[in-house]
Design a protein around this nucleic acid. Sequence first.
DNA 1: GAAATAGAACAT
DNA 2: TGTTCTATTTCA
Length: 654
Amino acid sequence: MIVHVALSIPVTKTFSYSVPEKWEPFIKRFLRVRVPFKNKTLVGFISDMDDGVDTNLKEIYEIVDIFPLMNDKLILLCEWASHYYITPIGIVLKYAIPASLHIEKYLTIKALEGRVLALDNVPLKKAYTAIGKDTVFQHYKEGLIELCDAFTNKPFSPLAEKSKSMEKPERILYIGDIESRLEYYTDLISIHLNKGGNVLMLLPDYYITGRYFYRMLFKRFHNNVLWYGATTKGRQRMETYFKARNEGGFLILGNISCTFLPVLNNSLIVVDRHEEDEYRNEEGFKFNAGLLVMKRAEIEHIPVVFGSVAPSMEIFKFVQDGNINIIEKAWLKNKKYSEIITEKNISSYGTLPEELIKIINTAIEKKEIVAIFTPRKDYSSYIQCLDCKRPFLCPVCQGIMSYQKHKNLLVCPACSKNLEYKEMCMNCGSNLIRFSQIGAEYFEEKMKNILKNIHIVRITGETIKEDLENLKNVSHETPAIIIGTQTLSKLYGLHANKLILIGWEELLRIAGYRAEEKMFQVFTNLLDALSPEEIYIVMERKKGVNTTYFLNLKTFYLEELKKRRAAEFPPYLRIFLIEVEKKGEQAGIKIINKIKEIIEKEGLTGYVTGPLMQKKKGYRWRIILKGNKELFYKSLLQIYNIPEVRIEADPLYI
DNA sequence: GAAATAGAACAT
DNA sequence: TGTTCTATTTCA
């Protein structure tokens, strides 16, 4: 017997192996197998098999699991994702079933018949070494034993398919503030839990947000709330895994790692703030969890709810096309908006306008909490020598360096190189240095200088521990100033009386084609999390934006969609970023020409930027392809299989 | 993706 | 002719 195995390597073809006789009876599609590859061992998935014999092929070492860990529906989801994101199925499957899942570790044998009584209560791994894995498999197949996990004590068996209900499951975009969202979620969730189903709920991946949701939902569902997020590790992770797989009536809170989680009787999927970038997986297999769980809900024939105050353009387009129903609760009422227009750019010179200081002082007198938003976390993101006029550039990649004062470090945001700041110009040695593009750290220092004995904290989401520690003493008993980046919009449960945005309009430059969308989302989510009564927007006269544009949700989205359509950008056309990195220029051009040839043959539109100087020696090229994927799927596959080429579907920043 | 191999460029 | 860096191939 020959099996064709999908490996987690960036080639789309599969690799064939022959199967030793003792494993033959257990071969099944999508089983994990351990195989020799080059001079190491890899775990792959059986994508197909046939009865032929080929003595030239290497043999598989063993079958890893006793049955495929995912059911047909989850596999269908993986296959869809593989196609949609131009990623080999082996890589997708490996993401869905990561090596960090230690399933066997928690399984124990239960003997069902007298003749295997010796195996009763023996840990699975022990039995493997004692009588051989194939013998254990044989016993299982013959129904002599069961495998029970340590958490539910229920038999481990292939994930059952849910019986299909007749009614068409709903897709809902719920627009409302955090309190109304929680109320809506809770009602819906309890309906499904009461029927014995499980519910998956995806949250933005930030500890403080997660804790808030857990607290609120625990009030209603108590110990039926489970965790499956980034901070859930080891034993706790496996506990959720087995409970979700074997039992019903649980609400599973988590992050993107829930996308492919096997769930028994999955009845509802909720995604809160689906527009957040954290739903995009950036390592290896790049996908958007919000979109994938929408597909999952479709495949599993269950309802899905997207709750937010600032939906993504993609989701809003689904609404417009009639593919998602919208429920909109009025909010943003009773807010006082003011603009503070400055003649000079604060970010460049760091002088705060008098008006702003007055506002802060009155807030302190009234014992209020003031939140200050800035788009940057560091002290300064642009350091320039006033003598030679040159900016501080990264010695490795020539990127513009940022300065972190508390560590006295110059860091490169592009390649994360960092070095100590020597208080002089890197080029000419002058000590006339100007810090501009200032961020949270700078404002913190400035505030501490102006306001003595006032509680001033900085929240940037860099280290959760620090953020938690900083927030510990903030209460409405004493005035406080909280300075932070977008992370401020995750601080649910903390009420700031005043919100001041400094440099918000600079997101226009930072966020690429999604700039306006991002601005809307940052602004609206800040209001949602902090629920301030008064909002102050500090802008430079020259670069000011029309604030009212961002205050009306409907008109904003319709207008943005119009612009996107005219510019042929997502959600109307998809974007594929093709990147080539080479040390030598000629070698790079050769590959680029190959890609161009494929593109031209299919008559596709695309354009090349670069070569961009990268690192000490080396070049990088970028080709951007825009269009409907189905039209050029074959070409993209061809391009994918060229070595040294990476394709990123739906890149966040271009 | 990464090791093995082939090829180019440079120094001795 | 060896040494080192870069490009290409191949994995079953």
